[in-house]
Design a binder for these strands. Structure first.
Length: 958
RNA sequence: GGGCGCAUAGCUCAGCUGGCUAGAGCGCUUCGUUUACACCGAAGAUGUCCUGGGUUCGAAUCCUAGUGCGCCCACCA
């Protein structure tokens, strides 16, 4: 069969068509795979990309790694599911749309109103979503599109509501007033990890509240001091000890303050004056002190970023204005002692860079410290809970404790493992998670409120509803606020739904199970359907940057909802950086569009550039040159295949999905040449080692191994040999090697391998072929394909390389044919038998003379005996102008062209090198401790090495 | 302030549990119109493995101190 294929592989010509065929085949869906009933499942849920923007190379890296794992396991016979989806990214998306709206129409979201605005968002989402999905397909991702999910679609909405209600009933979700990070521009709270920091110059004011107050205080924010209710000092501070516990009333710039002197170990004695004005309402730390000391909380700044009422002339002023006024006032009264410039860490909003105001606000929280009881209404007796490796009993533990235990117990593993420590550290310091956001786009909180006059209130019981009453202490003493939590709006008058929506991580935290049919697939503590078949998942593969943001939440939520870990392994990849080492991100706009890369170099090359040279947890620098290099590799594979397929000896292997390696091609050992044995042995090793690498997440190493074999062993040597070495088994061997090589490559570069597979005449997809297995699970001793064949061919290779090298070094013209005389040592027979290899492999040798072994001559008591022993005779027998090469204990003399001077220099260099090595080795061996303490094997090796080198040196000196 | 990571060829990086003369890709030099491939082939050059100390018969690898870069966390008023 002779196939005419284009010389260069053109990815853009085939890729889209191949993807369509795959998708149409239905094999991305595990339900369509032809598998035994008890086939183990292998699941990865795709971390859903934010629909704020199209994908960048970071996403491509994620897709490449996951598709590699997925395709590998699919070929290994797992029930393999890779489930796609997208994330609505609540606040981020809303911001993008708001900015767009302002730019294009000059309107704010308030101008449009909630409903109209949400329509706009959904319009935007539709567009980016379709771009994302197209990009994902371009990468070759073998995702099961039939199970596609969106964090904001109907099933997920149901799941989120159910989760909220369950957690509320369990007392894990509560509403409370706490200091939150408030962005006055976004008009919303931010989670702790949504806050960014910026170094800035700030003024530190040292002042006294009033003349008769004994403390001097330092602050960068004088305006918040209007709400101070205490002064804190370090309990060890001798200067202030006597004041602790006292209460002072002061007149601070016209406002009356009651200040209690408290002790707190967090106060640094050396900073400022060692005394700290406590502003409970506008500092996280101060809030905690206030709670600990029962201090009053006075709100100074409102949600609009302005000073509240009750502060006389300061009311209604902005923060900046108030600050200026207060400083002026202090200065006037001679209370300002110092003004200095300091470096300060300013918290800003990660979306709009507006400085954050810490404010007390009523928000919804997930408690991480609440001891958990049994899930509401469900029987919780699983007898084998403890024996199941995925289950974790959470009764009597807090979410925090459970999430830590899941990792410490080894149920969840991290790759690389150093992130385990980071996870646990973070977990141990975790505070309650604020889940309400004052934005419109997202899951609406399933809570309704109504306020009633006290006297009217009769305890109203709804069936199946969860009603709690909260007394609103301060402002409305006569009113009672009712709260209703449920899936459907409550009946009755006056209910208003909570305007807030949920933190986006609340819905993505449920991602492993909300995508698999929870809660419908989970009844009475039992899983069914997809949930039982695919949960927990095997690997969560994501960037280390969202380890805390996402991974930790998934663990907590899965433990809460299912009492089961969400995944067994967490593989964390690094960031993809540009060639200057800068992070690519949407917000910075320096992300390279993966589609451009794919158009230029092909998806396969793009994938390789993200897989090879990348190690878990480490960042990756990417440049066009690098991708071009892999384009060349893909092209090499294409051409190797083109050659093999067009070879008249080529046979299409019998098509059967479960064919194992070589099993259909029994080779007659007698018909195999040295090179055949060598390549078959190498291939067998390759299969074993590649599988081993992939099983241990060493993708880069596996890729390099494959490249090494494909390019250096198969293409550069075996194929070259096959051009002139004609034997019976050649066609079969070529077919087998190509066959298995394509399978091994397929998870890395699915497109080109699938295309070649088709060209080979296969009627089934390579994608669902069985991963190769080696005929010998254990390495065989010398008898079979490995062993002697391998070693022998390596020797011939060395001889050939040495001859080429000598020719190049001595500048022998390529056209010039020369004669080689080889003194074979122990290997004379072998070399003689492979003479044709040496002659044909571009050595320019037209005649090859092999002399007998020296010891044979010795034993024959020939007159030459003595000379032979010292190998002097070769120098006698060979013309003086011969070039001498020593390789692997073999002497080679090239006759025909010489440069005596160069040869002398070469020998001198080599001798010096050898002498150095011998001295080193002798030193080592004369060391008693080495001989006694080092393992025998190493000592023996060292001795042998020394012996060989000494012999070589001897030869050279002659 | 605490924690983590990195430092190896001109560049980007491998180097697992200490043990052949420390490797790969790209780049560089020389040569080559060989019927799979110039997105190619052949040959070659290049290292104080960041620095100092220690453990060991033996350290790029383990320990320790330091320097430089990067990242994460934290309530410096």
């Amino acid at each position: 069969m002779i196939k005419e294929l284009p010389k260069a592989y053109e990815p853009s010509k085939y890729e889209d068509g191949i993807y369509k065929k795959w998708e149409k085949s239905g094999f991305f869906n595990p339900d369509n795979l032809d598998l035994p009933k008890n086939a183990p499942s292998y699941t990865i849920i795709l971390p859903p990309p934010n629909i704020t923007d199209k994908l960048h190379l970071g996403h491509s890296s994620m897709l490449a790694i996951e598709d590699l794992l997925i395709r590998y396991h699919r070929m290994k016979g797992f029930r393999t599911l890779w489930l796609p989806g997208t994330d609505h990214a609540a606040i981020a998306t809303q911001n993008v749309v708001e900015k767009k709206l302002l730019k294009e129409e000059g309107k704010t979201r308030q101008d449009l109103g909630r409903e109209k605005f949400l329509e706009k968002v959904l319009e935007f989402v539709k567009i980016t979503q379709s771009v994302i999905l197209r990009q994902t397909r371009k990468m070759g991702a073998s995702l099961d599109w039939s199970r596609e999910a969106f964090t904001l679609d109907k099933p997920r909405e149901e799941a989120v509501k159910k989760m909220f209600i369950d957690m509320y009933e369990a007392g894990v979700i509560y509403r409370g007033e706490r200091i939150v990070n408030w962005c006055p521009r976004c008009h919303s709270t931010l989670a702790d990890d949504e806050v960014e920091y910026k170094d800035q110059q700030a003024k530190l004011y040292t002042f006294k509240y009033s003349k008769d107050f004994p403390f001097t205080i330092a602050t960068t924010r004088p305006e918040t001091k209007l709400g101070d209710t205490a002064v804190a000092v370090n309990p060890k501070d001798k200067r202030y000890k006597k004041y602790i516990g006292k209460v002072y009333e002061v007149d601070f710039v016209g406002i009356k303050l009651k200040l209690k002197i408290i002790a707190d170990r967090h106060v640094e004695m050396d900073f400022g004056t060692g005394a700290l004005g406590v502003t409970p309402a506008h500092s996280m730390a101060d809030w905690q002190m206030a709670e600990a000391n029962g201090l009053e909380i006075i709100k100074v700044i409102g949600e609009d970023g302005k000073i509240n009422n009750n502060f006389k002339k300061y009311s209604g002023k902005t923060v900046e204005e108030a600050r200026e006024m207060i400083v002026k006032e202090l200065r006037k009264n001679n209370l300002l002692e110092k003004e200095e410039e300091i470096e300060n860490n300013l918290s800003i909003c990660y979306r709009c860079n507006t400085p954050i105001e810490p404010l007390p606000s009523k928000q919804w929280f997930v408690s991480v410290d609440k001891k958990l009881k049994r899930l509401g209404g469900e029987t919780q007796k699983h007898k084998n809970t403890k024996t199941q490796k995925h289950k974790l009993d959470i009764e009597g533990k807090t979410l925090k404790e459970a999430a830590i235990e899941a990792v410490k117990s080894g149920k969840i593993k991290f790759i690389p493992d150093r992130f385990e420590k980071r996870y646990i550290d973070w977990m141990e310091n975790l505070h309650d998670w604020c889940i309400s956001r004052q934005i419109w786009f997202g899951h609406r909180i399933p809570v309704w409120h109504r306020t009633r006059k006290h006297e009217n209130t009769k305890t109203q019981k709804h069936e199946n509803t969860k009603t709690r009453k909260h007394k609103n202490t301060k402002t409305q003493k006569h009113e009672i606020e009712e709260i209703y939590v449920g899936i459907e709006p409550p009946k009755g008058e006056g209910w208003v739904q909570d305007p807030d929506s949920l933190d986006t991580w609340f819905s993505s935290g449920m991602w492993t199970f909300s995508t698999l049919g929870w809660p419908d697939n989970f009844k009475n503590g039992k899983k069914k359907g997809d949930l039982s078949r695919f949960h927990p998942t095997q690997v969560l593969e994501t960037g280390y940057d969202i380890l805390t943001l996402w991974v930790s939440r998934m663990i907590m939520m899965s433990l809460f909802a299912l009492r089961e870990i969400p995944f067994e392994n967490v593989y964390l990849h690094g960031m993809v950086l540009d060639e200057h080492g800068k992070k690519m991100s949407k917000s910075k706009g320096n992300g390279i569009d993966p589609v451009d890369m794919i158009d230029k170099f092909g998806a396969d090359a793009a994938r390789l550039s993200l897989l090879i040279g990348n190690t878990p947890g480490n960042d990756l620098r990417l440049s066009e040159e690098k991708i071009a290099g892999f384009r060349n590799l893909v092209n090499k594979i294409w051409n190797v295949s083109r050659y093999v397929i067009s070879d008249f000896r080529f046979q299409t292997p019998p098509s059967s999905a479960d064919r194992g390696w070589v099993s259909d091609f029994r080779f007659n050992q007698k018909n195999l040449t040295v090179s055949d044995k060598w390549i078959l042995g190498k291939m067998e090793n390759l299969i074993k080692e590649t599988g081993d690498d992939l099983d241990n997440y060493r993708f880069s190493q596996a890729g390099e191994r494959l490249r090494e074999f494909t390019w250096n062993d198969f293409a550069d040597w075996y194929l070259e040999v096959s051009k002139f070495e004609k034997n019976k088994e050649k066609g079969k061997i070529l077919s087998v090697i190509l066959n298995d090589l394509l399978k091994l490559w397929h998870p890395f570069i699915p497109f080109v391998t699938e295309k070649i597979w088709e060209e080979m005449g296969n009627d089934k997809f390579l994608m669902i072929e069985k991963w190769p297995v080696t005929p010998h699970p254990q390495p065989l001793p010398h008898s079979c394909c490995r062993g002697r064949g391998e070693i022998d061919f390596e020797l011939i290779k060395d001889v050939i390389t040495a001859i080429r090298n000598a020719r190049a070094e001595n500048k022998i013209e390529p056209a010039r044919k020369i004669k080689a005389v080889i003194y074979g040592g122990k290997s004379a027979d072998l070399i003689k038998s492979q003479e044709y290899l040496i002659k044909n492999m571009r050595t320019g040798i037209k005649e090859l003379e092999i002399k007998e072994k020296a010891d044979k001559i010795k034993n024959r008591r020939s007159p030459l005996r003595e000379a032979a022993a010292g190998q002097r005779m070769w120098h006698c027998l060979v013309p003086k102008d011969a070039i001498h090469i020593a390789v692997a204990g073999i002497e080679i003399y090239l006759i025909g062209a010489v440069d005596e001077e160069k040869e002398k220099i070469r020998i001198k260099k080599e001798r010096e090198n050898l002498e150095k090595l011998i001295i080193m080795a002798e030193k080592k061996l004369s060391n008693k401790e080495f001989v006694e303490k080092a393992p025998e094997k190493i000592v023996k090796q060292e001795k042998e090495k020394l012996k060989l080198r000494k012999e070589e040196l001897k030869k050279l000196t002659k």
